[in-house]
Design a protein around this nucleic acid. Sequence first.
DNA 1: GACGTAATTCAAAGCGGTTTGGATGGGTGT
DNA 2: ACACCCATCCAAACCGCTTTGAATTACGTC
Lengths: 342, 342
Amino acid sequence: MNLKELSQALELSQTTVSRALNGYPEVSAETRSRVEEMARKLGYAPNQQARRLATGRSMSIGHVIPRSLHEMMNPVFMEFIAGAGETYSRHGYDMIISVVEDHNVEAAYREIASKKKTDAVMVHGPRSSDERPALLKELGLPFLIHGRVPGLEHATSWIDVNNGRAFERATNLLLDLGHRRIALLNGLEDMDFAARRRAGFDKAHHDRGLQTIPELLRAADMTEPYGADSALEMLKSPEPPTAFMVSSMITAIGVARAIGLCGLKIGRDISVITHDDALSFLPNCGDVPIFTCTRSSVRDAGSRAAQLLIEKILPNPDTIVSEHLEAELIIGQSTGPLPTQA
Amino acid sequence: MNLKELSQALELSQTTVSRALNGYPEVSAETRSRVEEMARKLGYAPNQQARRLATGRSMSIGHVIPRSLHEMMNPVFMEFIAGAGETYSRHGYDMIISVVEDHNVEAAYREIASKKKTDAVMVHGPRSSDERPALLKELGLPFLIHGRVPGLEHATSWIDVNNGRAFERATNLLLDLGHRRIALLNGLEDMDFAARRRAGFDKAHHDRGLQTIPELLRAADMTEPYGADSALEMLKSPEPPTAFMVSSMITAIGVARAIGLCGLKIGRDISVITHDDALSFLPNCGDVPIFTCTRSSVRDAGSRAAQLLIEKILPNPDTIVSEHLEAELIIGQSTGPLPTQA
DNA sequence: GACGTAATTCAAAGCGGTTTGGATGGGTGT
DNA sequence: ACACCCATCCAAACCGCTTTGAATTACGTC
């Protein structure tokens, strides 16, 4: 069932039928309803490909995921996608996802642009120095970044958690509780989000005239064993930390395991604060969550990002929009005052 | 730069240029290379939408994710997607993902079919009674199931881990070690994979004339707190289990936490075997992995599924292919013989 | 009753490719 | 020298929709 057949069944021109269905004003109300009814009866739906060709809009948004990024951010990324996906479909957009090797990212974007595959792209996991914004500008491909690229805060559109502030506040909480040997298990610090968390962590110390402790600072892919192994090693060292700031729930779970293995009790002997992306399969809620955390729903971020892209950037690709999401600081069971030396 | 312009620059017809680029034989080698060179020089790439309209193939595969499924399978799902995505792009296919509310799944498929959005779809997380295969057949949309629908094993194409056998073997291992009070923390048992795991668990018992213990059987969304809360409750009961079979690493981590909270040692006091989907952010490997597990890479499954869909099913939509993936049973640190009563 | 205007409707021209059904021309066999 | 056959290449149709520009009809006005 295509437009031609439908218009013949109605004894109307394709023009009129098309206009009736697409809500153009130059169609009488009566005709429109007649068309709509017939379309429903005959089960007509416009061919997507044809419409795309005719309008020049692909009605889809691209997500290019570098393999390396995916390895690291896997679950977080999926949650973002879920949020974005819902918003896309509400607006009639498709989401197309390309998982590519790192060295093929540029080629992937070029292909999207030259073949006119999508109307815009979402950029994930920006690094402190990231070449994607320049490339996308060159290609004329509208985009929005989940995160920020330093130096391009005012030149690109983005949505980002206020990572610096979140980690500064969390660190201050630990300092207020008396902790002075605080470990930081960060993500890889060439990632912008990790650099900002590190900066917040440092700032909280420096503002009180305190120094961070080099032996207690780590940066790596945020896996569970990373958390466990690092924490184990630190806890067994001559001068162990009394608290941990952790960049991911997954890693924090590893830290908790290590603390248990050392026969210590989390929240009493050792404090832990983690960033919590509010992943659906790792709920950390309730009156008193397991982990004290800085929380910001990455799913909401995805949803909001999609909305900004579709409503602000697509209609006017030169618009620059940016939005900060503040993380909540939520007190759970994993923090407590510095234990007094028994 | 479109085909018309390119052909003018070459002083050839669009037909010839199109054929040269698409590898048709009726073009001389010389002409072909001349065309290819010029195309490269001018940066020509065929417009995706136009090609789709002309060929009638969308060169894309759809994944419709019901919200409920997503909640549950989030990380596993993402890993599958990653595997499939790589295979897709190698074959020139796009992956389009729709996250929809459960009650909109049917509508989503109907839309894909009527608008000709994708050439085929991948079906995720089949339930013991699942209406999607029938719908997709009605719509004439080729598909492959990741998992199986009971009763349709020979009527549909699928790829699936041999869940029954995996859990049967794992349960036997525990029984061999002397365990007689084995808890099962399963996924929701209206999901086919969970039903099969349950069946394997039961079979291992029944084959030895043993009964499973109703109080020790649970089925729920496979979150971390589910594991922790269930295990805690069971361990504190008058007749606690001595071993756990768990359907997901995430849940197993919760179990491990509960064991720690009870002051017990995993592998010595309490044994745990989990299914391990080989998620990249939860590596459970090394010489002696943390968890004894039944392991099957869901990423490989995705990759293989995509391959079957593209290479077997698309060329001939009536083909029925099915493939079993065997899970490895890997001994880690979380299992040991039944402790002798001290 | 002629005329300007607004409200509807339509035929046809794209959009940018692929594919069908010839045309053209050089080489071969007799 | 002639018929015939490939090897190449091309003009035009087609995919199914949107949109431009024009035609038709209806209506109120002077």
